[in-house]
Each structure stands twice: as C-alpha cells, then as structure tokens.
C-alpha cells in the first residue's frame, strides 16, 4: 500500500485547519505498521483517508496499485473500528460472516476463510452462537478483528482497537492479535496510543507530529519474530521503548512551543 503526499484540511475558508500535510508512507505486503502520535495529530483522519471513508484534498493512496475506490469495490480493505461495532441482533458467527455475505461479487478469486475456524482460532469457538451483548468487551473486540480477517483483505486498518479495554484485558487481546497475525501475515496499519503495544506488534512505527499532522520519524522495530510476552523483559525492548518515548516527548514539546 502506498500513501503519497496526502493533505487534508477541515473548516471554512477563513478558519481552515490543515490536519494532514504531505504525508507519505509505504506499507509492504505482510508488514505491520503502527501509527503513534499526540492526540489530534490526524491518525484517525489518515486512516479514514486510506479506508476511503473520507477524501483527501491532495495526494493519492493506492492499494496493490489500485485506487482506494477500486480497492473498496474489490473488498480489499478490512476495517477494525475503535468500538467493536458488531450488530447486536446477529450472533457472533453471523456478525463475522457478514463481510462474506456483503458485496458477494467481490468474493470471486479470493481465499475466504471459514468463519467458524477463524472464530475458534481467536478463542471464540464457544461463543459463536451467542449475541454481542452476552460477550465481554475483549471478546467483542476479538470478534471485530475476526470479522476483518475473515474475507482475506489485502490490508487491515485498525484504529485503537483495544483502547476501550482495561490494561490486563488489553495485553491479552494484543498478544492474541500478535499470535494470529504471526501465522497470517497481512499488511496492517494500526493506530495506537501505547508505545509497548506498538513495539510488540510492529515491524515499523510511524511517529506523527501535530499542527499540521505530518510524519516526524519512522522507527524500525528490529526485534526477532515470532515474539511473545518474554520480549517485554528484554533489554532490546526496553531500549527501544525508551527511544520511542523520547521521540514522542520531543514531538509533543515541539508542538507546545
């Protein structure tokens, strides 16, 4: 996926605010990229532009060499919103099967996954026939992630999928996503506020600065895979965490001057 020179601003002419200014980014096939930065720097806006939910004022996005509109038509984009956004009147299984049922013309020539199998691998095998309201927040969010993986999109976009969860649950869901992703490497653009989460999951971390939103630094995460909890305790992890936190602090201080 390629994002080149995206600009976007909001507001009427006199009070126009530039939210994204010349953002360029390439995500390779099967690469996990995290987007981190101060609140309001335009992470969600960038994700919306990439998802085709909002139009940029300038620049272009291409997914596998095709425009976002074309990618959407082919169901190439999997979205995991901040809240699970499951349909309360459908069972978990029916919720996860929904992307297969919708826009069926785009199903041709792709390897759809078996919803039951994917739910089982997300640890929701016993919850398939239940309704979202009967599940915990963490389980709901896992179902939302399963829903994005089930139709085998080219790229997954996740906007702080774990932000509504408490710390313990959050870590559990994060490791679940890590496990699943390590055995199904897909291109992912993952927005987060958590430095350890970004390091644990990503191949690269994109650090954004605010006013206007732009990329300040791209940090490679050269930690071996497959990863697991043990990584938190390593020096390499701690060093990198210190580095990212420091870079983040600099970006935030610069914004206040």
């Amino acid at each position: 996926m390629q994002v080149s020179n995206i600009t976007k601003s909001f507001g009427p002419d006199e009070a126009r605010v530039t939210v994204l200014n010349g953002v360029s980014l390439t995500i390779r096939k099967g690469e996990f990229v995290s987007l981190i930065g101060p609140s309001g720097c335009g992470k969600s806006t960038l994700l919306k532009v990439v998802a085709g939910l909002s139009d940029a004022d300038g620049g272009s996005v291409s997914i596998n060499g095709k425009s976002v509109a074309e990618a959407a038509r082919r169901k190439a984009i999997g979205l995991v919103p901040q809240s699970p956004a499951l349909l309360p009147w459908r069972t978990i299984l029916d919720n996860v099967s929904l992307p297969i049922k919708i826009n069926p013309a785009a199903n041709a020539g792709r390897t759809l996954r078996d919803p039951k199998e994917i739910l089982t691998s997300f640890g929701l095998g016993k919850a398939m026939d239940r309704y979202p309201a009967q599940l915990s927040g963490g389980m709901q969010q896992r179902a939302a992630i399963a829903r994005a993986f089930v139709f085998d999109p080219d790229i997954l976009l996740m906007d702080e999928p774990f932000s509504a969860l408490d710390e313990m649950n959050r870590d559990q869901q994060r490791m679940g996503l890590l496990d699943f992703w390590q055995s199904n490497q897909k291109s992912v653009l993952f927005v987060t506020h958590s430095v350890p989460e970004a390091i644990m999951l990503s191949d690269r971390i994109v650090l954004m600065a605010a006013h206007p939103g732009r990329i300040a630094e791209i940090i490679d995460v050269d930690l071996p895979r497959p990863r697991n909890e043990a990584l938190y305790a390593t020096d390499a992890f701690r060093d990198l965490e210190g580095y990212v936190r420091n870079a983040l602090r600099k970006v935030m201080e610069a914004a206040h001057v």
């Binding site: 998802a51 939910l53 082919r74 919103p81 956004a85 349909l87 919708i102 785009a106 139709f151």
Partner: peptide, 9 residues
C-alpha cells in the same frame, strides 16, 4: 458499523 459497511462497498 456504517464505516465497516462502506469499506466493504
């Protein structure tokens, strides 16, 4: 949920 529907076209 509407966003999810839109990305699925």
């Amino acid at each position: 949920a509407l966003d999810v529907f839109k990305t699925l076209h």
